[in-house]
Design a protein around this nucleic acid. Structure first.
Length: 442
RNA sequence: UCCUCGGUAGCUCAAUGGUAGAGCAUUCGGCUGUUAACCGAAGGGUUGCAGGUUCGAGUCCUGCCCGAGGAGCCA
């Protein structure tokens, strides 16, 4: 069937609707909602690029077309043909005077689309995540996530970095040992990676500046708004870089991602009702930098129980991140609270040459990293101190046997970053299909 | 693993220990400019599961299951 001259009428995307004012067009998508007023129907169409209100007057179409539209149910799939008209009364400013509708699949009323336009609880929405993604808010978040990832790739590519993919199956822990997902690997055991960093260090010796971007896995029984068991991490590693250089790289990256989202994703931020005046200052460098020592003093003056030498708790992070308008870089934590590969400060060996970046508005840690131990002897000592299996790290020690080099890097959790940009309560909405302590489906 | 809160119609939620209710969704009817439209009517229930207390339990007690938020740990 040619469906009302399908070959004469252009098939368009709703986002381009303004270009077709006065013309006859065909759109294909789903029914977002249907309002009716006597002999007038107002179907709202959704095609993944936007919403478009249609108008069907009983007097203007055949009885068959009128009945067909009148009986449509929410999220039924269809093609609609009509004349585009500018009209202030329509959401979006344009509407479609529908002349014909082809139903692809009409959802039967006995089993209606589960997600209504009213409010739903989080458990219900998470169980229907595969459908929830169609809603405006979720589409806006997907758009921002896409922009952040694309901007991050551009940022590193423009600076001469080479993307080197790191493995997901690994033979041993990168950091802790208690938070690994174990899987059968033929007759052996393997673990899902927690970080690409160790492999990044090998890649840095090959290409100088490298980054990886992929999923990482943490079997932590964490149940908070900041945790997923599977999340995506962006990890650069730079040969011959020290702490100051990696701090500069981290803040330039964040400022550039903010800039890109503000530039290209205004519509999405508006849908999310994000207060962008909170993001705008974060385009400007530099970001505030404090040391761990200074952070402890700030926390103690705000009533925290923290003692020098301890790591920050969730509330400590919140206090610090609300204390600054922009992301804050905290450097030089005590070695004892950091991973085994962190290089010590030559002037104060009890401190590590590391950075954490905390996002403002209470969002907390989005970046963690620092300078790595370059020397063989110290690294061996640290492996022993952390009771890590030496055999599994022989290849890693090779990087210190054959042309050991100073190098630094960091990891940025994409979901936490996107959660902050979008102003979300929980990271679970920043990834299409979140994996959490009690959530493996859909 | 621990602490706190919760589980009632498809969904969101009410209901002093005394007949299980509303809005939305669905069905039917009304309305030619609706904006999560509105107005009228109808159908829709093993109150998470298993015990217990009581004349009587959605409500009180015990155990279990499921979920949410937080702690620890982390990006």
């Amino acid at each position: 069937m040619t469906f009302g001259g399908k070959f004469l009428v252009p098939t368009i995307e709703i986002r381009d609707i303004a270009q077709y004012a006065g013309q006859k067009v065909l759109i294909q998508g789903w029914l977002y909602n249907l309002r009716e007023s006597g002999k007038l129907l107002f179907p709202i169409f959704r095609d993944g690029t936007g919403l478009l209100q249609g108008v069907v007057a009983k007097s203007a179409v055949s009885p068959e077309v009128f009945e067909r539209v009148k009986n449509l149910t929410q999220e039924s799939s269809l093609r609609a043909e009509g004349q585009v008209r500018e009209d202030k009364r329509a959401p979006g400013g344009f509407e479609l005077d529908v002349t014909n509708v082809e139903i692809i699949q009409c959802i039967p009323p006995e089993q209606p689309y589960p997600i209504s336009l009213k409010e739903h609880g989080i458990e219900f929405l998470m169980d229907h995540r595969h459908l929830w993604l169609r809603s405006s808010r979720q589409r806006a978040i997907l758009g921002v996530r896409h922009e952040v990832i694309k901007a991050a790739r551009d940022f590193f590519d423009d600076r001469g970095f080479t993307l080197v993919d790191t493995p997901i199956f690994t033979p041993a822990a990168c950091e802790g040992t208690t938070t690994l997902f174990e899987v059968n690997y033929f007759d052996d055991k393997a673990y899902l990676t927690q970080s690409g960093q160790l492999y990044n260090e090998a890649a840095a010796a090959a290409v100088g500046k490298t980054y990886c971007f992929g999923p990482v896995f943490r079997a932590e029984k964490s149940k908070t708004r900041r945790h997923l068991t599977e999340f995506w991490m962006l990890e650069p590693e730079v040969a011959f870089a020290g702490l100051d250089e990696i701090c500069a790289l981290a803040e330039q990256l964040v400022a550039s991602l903010i800039e890109r989202v503000l530039e290209n994703r205004q519509t999405e931020l508006k849908t999310l009702e994000r207060d962008i005046t909170k993001l705008e200052p974060c385009r400007e460098l530099p970001f505030p930098r404090i040391t761990y020592d200074e952070a402890v003093k700030i926390l103690q003056s705000h009533g925290s129980e923290i003692q020098w030498g301890g790591d920050f708790g969730g509330t400590d992070e919140t206090i610090l991140s609300q204390h600054f308008q922009k992301p804050v870089l905290i450097t030089r934590y005590p070695t004892q609270v950091k991973a085994f590969y962190m290089a010590p400060d030559p002037e104060r060996p009890e401190l590590a040459l590391c950075i954490d970046m905390l996002a403002p508005e209470g969002y907390g840690e989005i970046i963690g990293g620092g300078e790595r131990i370059a020397g063989y002897d110290l690294l061996v000592k640290r492996l022993e101190e952390h009771a890590l299996p030496r055999e599994a790290f022989e290849w890693y020690l090779d990087l210190r046997r054959y042309g050991a080099f100073p190098h630094s890097g960091f990891g940025m959790g994409i979901e936490r970053f996107v959660g902050w940009i979008c102003g979300l309560e929980h990271v679970r909405e920043t990834i299409p299909f979140p994996r959490m302590l009690y959530r493996l489906t859909p």
